[in-house]
Nucleic acid binder design. Structure first.
Lengths: 218, 218
DNA sequence: GTCTATATGAAGATAGAC
DNA sequence: GTCTATCTTCATATAGAC
């Protein structure tokens, strides 16, 4: 376990040109690890789910930990990809925030993002590099993107940061959005959120944000 | 939002009158489970840490899952106890919020609360009752207590909820507080937060809150 | 590279003496 | 109730044939 903990975020780069078999193994591993956690998952489950033999798994990934790392890296990448689709245009602040909010929550509350969050958070004390990678390619990217959006709003004189910087204000906004909804999904995995609940919470966050930071309360 | 909150979970009740040996086992189990997670922990570790034999463990807790449940229940109880110490007095809103914020963060960012959060979140899909118990005795209690504080502020005409209810506004406040700090601690377990960072973030949350909800911007 | 079969160790849980 | 010793199962990982 220890030798796998990589210092200084020197993450082993995943060979992106996976052979089809390796990709099959990885896909199965994603499903199994995100469903059962690192320790709960067994190489047998992965092998069986992939429909390959044990030694095929080990031919492509030297051990369970490496395979786990590849899973998290792969998921982080696809996570980031979704986040980049978030757009923002100046003009109608409330409507822009609403779009931003829903785009963000679609990702943050998705089953796969929640599963990734669970497993990364759980294993972070034993695999610090995982925690760092997740933060840097997930929440940090979100903050940056939302921050850029708010910079546009600032340039267009739609908001007034009142001394904070754009990234801090971005964090305030996503924090209000995520908060209760995220926690509800995490602690009640068996109870999906109703759309009306999400919409209601989005409006609370937006109206709070507007009263704090909008230049004119529209 | 209300329909989300689960009342009256059918949680297995823990026998609170533990014998000294049972308490010794439980204390060891708390340490081991919160350090290694459910699957990562072994009954051998617990046995060894408690300085008892295997069959002593099984004499008091019928199996690993029961023991785990007792651990989470016991930790939740002590968690709630701390939360109840949070007080609020009307008069100076900013100062009251600051005290509330620090009292909350002292608990939420403590090593034991983070460890409990990790393990509960990780296992919630397999043990839904754990997630429910955690939510009801942790975050829900916080929200209620903060909500009561804000009701006082409302009665004293210090804040204006602008259509939201007190518990929603309470949630907005703790969400802003927790947000980035909580995530940082979760994803960077090896990197303790500096007091200055916490203080800075508290001020951001407070000033945002004040601009949204205070009746007169003091 | 991929398979079947297996080595090796460790896990959860129990038997039986005291 | 508590211990030592052990049963059984199942985990990760490898050997050796094709």
């Amino acid at each position: 376990m220890k030798d796998l903990i990589l210092q200084n975020d020197n993450l082993p780069r995943l060979d992106l040109n996976l052979t089809p078999k390796a990709q099959t193994v990885l896909n199965a591993a994603i499903k199994i690890f995100l469903t059962h956690g690192f320790n709960g998952a067994t190489t047998d489950m992965i092998q069986r789910s992939a429909g390959v033999s044990k030694s095929t798994v080990y031919a492509h990934f030297s051990n369970k930990e490496r395979l786990f790392l590849a899973v998290v890296q792969s998921e982080c990448a696809s996570f980031t990809k979704s986040i980049h689709s978030i757009e923002f245009t100046a003009g109608n602040l409330t409507e822009s925030l609403r779009k931003l909010a829903h785009a963000y929550l679609d990702v943050a509350l998705s089953d796969s993002a929640l599963a990734l969050y669970r497993v990364v958070i759980a294993e972070a004390p034993r695999f610090p590099a995982l925690g760092h990678m997740f933060y840097n390619t997930g929440p940090y990217v979100v903050k940056t993107i939302v921050g850029k959006s708010f910079q546009k709003a600032l340039d267009a004189n739609e908001i007034d940061l009142n001394g904070a910087d754009v990234n801090e204000v971005a964090e305030v906004f996503v924090a209000m959005l995520r908060s209760e909804l995220h926690l509800q999904r995490l602690t009640h995995p068996d109870k999906p959120l109703k759309k009306s609940v999400i919409d209601h919470w989005v409006e609370i966050a937006i109206s709070s944000f507007i009263r704090s930071y909008a230049t004119d309360n529209e």
